[in-house]
Design a protein around this nucleic acid. Structure first.
Lengths: 244, 244
DNA sequence: CGCGTGATTGAAAAGCATCAACCCAAGTGG
DNA sequence: CCACTTGGGTTGATGCTTTTCAATCACGCG
């Protein structure tokens, strides 16, 4: 079994050349993961935490609860993703983070991240890059809920997740594991569970993609992407060109 | 008339104590603004630019065009806002930026920003903070289009803009200038212009807020905020607590 | 004055939510 | 071992929300 910190370190190395010294910092920071059960809040809106969380295994999500009792999910967190880098700089959480599956997470003290911005420009830049990619994904999600219909929204989400997970080797032959309920899918794309269910049936019957028992299987990738209007440019998956 | 760089520098100073040396860098960087007409693309999706833009006067927006000929706006840029800090680190633009009114903008060469990350940790942190606040606003916009109805979306947008502009002294007595068309308002909150118009009428008749001739006038702030479910925490307007 | 852009209103149709029922599989406890 | 419970998936019927299409109005400008 590979070193648990691999997903995280590999991700950052994709953004910036990471020196041995910085590598040691990363290894040290991600050394002692702790287990968390599924459907557990890691941190809640309003909290003023003093740790940054990092997902090593499992899937979590960012969300806000709505006054009517629903919730809006606006990010899935997969291994290697920061939970709340925000917290290191901002004051209090403006949203919550919950696990969707059992997870393994590590905590990095806030002070350690602040210190990093003073002493390690390459890592700071890599973290900043992470923020910027997160931002790009959020923009596309606004396009998704703001200007696509129900089927297109779901199709687009599946395209994105496939591309993202493929980049870290978590897909196989057009399929990937997505351990969420249809209610959570609805909370993600701004639909009710009932309508999400009907839309899934349409997509299945159209021969584009199926979602059964935690498995998304893309039937026809080219048609699915065309249907969803998916353009992966916003994921910024290709490596950064050498900067001098 | 105040130094044109004030909005920008004041904004950053709200995030981090800025030393004299850094101040000089900022003044220098924002020294020579150039005028741009309304409804002009500053930069387009797919471009690989070598400048970072900074809005000194006027209002611009980030947007993506949809295949059906519409567009989705996901940010308004007001004086002091960065246009595309992303570009300094990411590869190519994943969205476009256009002026909505005549604007005055400055360009900062990409290399200058990269150099900054090596030599000026306080400024780098301030820029990073800007990214994180942008991110928080994007999250709330997803909640807006994903889980509020037409009237609530518009009401929420107006609450946000009022709070944001009030923080930089651009409101007066519950009103502010919003030089956009109803079509652009619709493109922002994921509605057609027709339905945006009807929703505006409802809000006006409910005595909450009016929007006529580029002026938003909040009639009853408390009720408007309650109606929209507005909580300003995500704007992170309060100053950062002293770190260390 | 005529034209173009944006605002406004009406009527019809489509999209989506709501309510309600039922099915199914995986526990759980007697 | 089985009755019972529970959470998630599926489907139908109905109504509200939003879009679409179309027409008209108001205004600034050459």
């Amino acid at each position: 079994m590979p070193n648990a910190s691999n997903a995280f370190i590999r991700k950052l190395q994709g953004y910036e050349p990471v020196g041995d010294d910085d590598l040691a910092w990363l290894r040290d920071a991600s050394a002692t993961p702790r287990k968390v059960k599924a459907n557990t809040d890691l941190i809640r809106e309003g909290d003023v935490p003093d740790n940054v969380f990092l997902i090593m295994e499992g899937i979590a999500c960012r969300y806000k609860s709505t006054p009517e009792g629903g919730r809006q999910i606006f990010a899935y967190l997969v291994p290697g993703d920061f939970c709340d880098l925000h917290v290191a700089l901002l004051d209090e959480m403006d949203h919550s983070i919950a696990t969707l599956t059992p997870c393994s997470v590590v905590r990095i003290p806030k002070g350690k991240v602040l210190e990093l911005t003073e002493t390690r420009p390459a890592l700071t830049r890599a973290f900043w890059w992470c923020s910027l990619v997160d931002e790009a994904v959020l923009r596309e999600w606004i396009v998704n809920v703001g200007s696509r219909n129900a089927e297109e929204r779901i199709a687009h989400l599946f395209c994105e997740l496939h591309a993202w997970l493929q980049a870290v080797g978590l897909t196989s032959d057009g399929s990937f594991v997505l351990p969420i309920t249809q209610t959570e899918l609805g909370d993600t794309v701004g639909l009710t569970a009932v309508h999400a269910n009907r839309s899934l049936r349409s997509l299945r019957e159209a021969g584009l993609v199926t979602f059964r028992g935690d498995i998304v299987q893309v039937t026809d990738m080219a048609r699915l992407q065309a249907f969803a209007g998916f353009n992966p440019n916003y994921l910024h998956l290709q490596r950064k060109r050498q900067a001098s």
